[in-house]
Computed example of a mutant assay.
Amino acid sequence: MRWNKDILLSSLHSLLGHGSSRPARLAKGGSAPARLEAVRAAMLAELERAEPVGFEHVMKRLELARDAEALWFLRADLMAALNVLIGDHAAQRSLARITPLFRGLLPASLNSRPSRLG
């Protein structure tokens, strides 16, 4: 299944609360399945923006991931692909936009923590 821009933009807009009278709260509100699809759409959008020639397998894995934990672990594959396609700094910025979308979808043990290596 190939995601088109309209589906991705619609998912992202609904996640961010555009076109809705209620405020967007990532940790609260919205159904878990809808939020999961918004995370998937955001990850796919970042990859598609980089024109993922050679990384179609990463897109397929993102499309087929069954839950938030699977998408969480696919961040590493996404980072690796984006690193090749757009460079390390831009890839890190992309992941920084995506990571907060997982808030409230994962068990506490999988939430990212600040690094002491900063």
Rank of each mutant, 00 (worst) to 15 (best):
N4S: 06
N4D: 15
K5I: 11
K5Q: 15
D6C: 00
D6M: 09
I7G: 00
L8S: 07
L8F: 02
L9V: 07
L9Y: 04
L9E: 12
S10K: 08
S10A: 09
S11M: 14
S11G: 10
L12T: 01
H13E: 09
S14P: 00
S14F: 04
S14Q: 05
L15C: 05
L16G: 13
L16Q: 14
G17E: 00
H18M: 01
G19E: 07
S20T: 14
S20W: 13
S20N: 14
S21F: 13
S21G: 10
R22M: 12
P23V: 02
A24E: 11
A24N: 08
A24V: 03
A27Q: 11
A27R: 09
K28C: 07
G29Q: 00
G29C: 02
G29H: 05
G30T: 02
G30F: 02
A32D: 12
A32Y: 01
P33W: 06
A34I: 03
R35Q: 05
R35A: 02
E37G: 01
A38D: 11
A41I: 01
A42M: 14
M43Y: 03
M43A: 08
L44D: 06
A45Y: 10
E46N: 08
L47V: 06
L47K: 10
E48Q: 11
R49L: 03
R49Y: 01
R49Q: 08
A50C: 12
E51H: 15
E51I: 14
P52E: 04
V53K: 13
F55C: 10
F55Y: 15
E56K: 00
E56W: 00
H57Q: 13
M59F: 00
M59S: 13
R61P: 03
R61M: 04
L62A: 03
L62M: 01
L64W: 08
L64R: 15
A65H: 08
A65E: 10
R66I: 08
R66S: 14
D67H: 13
E69M: 05
W72P: 05
W72G: 02
W72M: 05
F73Q: 02
D77G: 04
D77V: 01
L78I: 05
A80P: 03
A81C: 07
A81W: 08
L82I: 05
L82D: 04
L82Q: 05
N83P: 05
N83H: 14
N83A: 12
L85E: 03
I86L: 09
G87V: 11
G87E: 13
G87Y: 12
G87L: 13
D88E: 14
H89P: 00
A90W: 14
A90E: 15
A90R: 15
Q92N: 06
S94E: 04
S94F: 01
L95W: 10
R97Q: 10
R97C: 06
T99V: 15
R103G: 00
R103I: 03
G104V: 07
L105M: 09
L105A: 07
L106C: 00
L106F: 01
P107W: 06
A108G: 11
S109P: 01
S109Q: 08
N111I: 05
N111H: 10
R113H: 08
P114L: 06
S115A: 05
S115T: 04
R116W: 10
R116E: 10
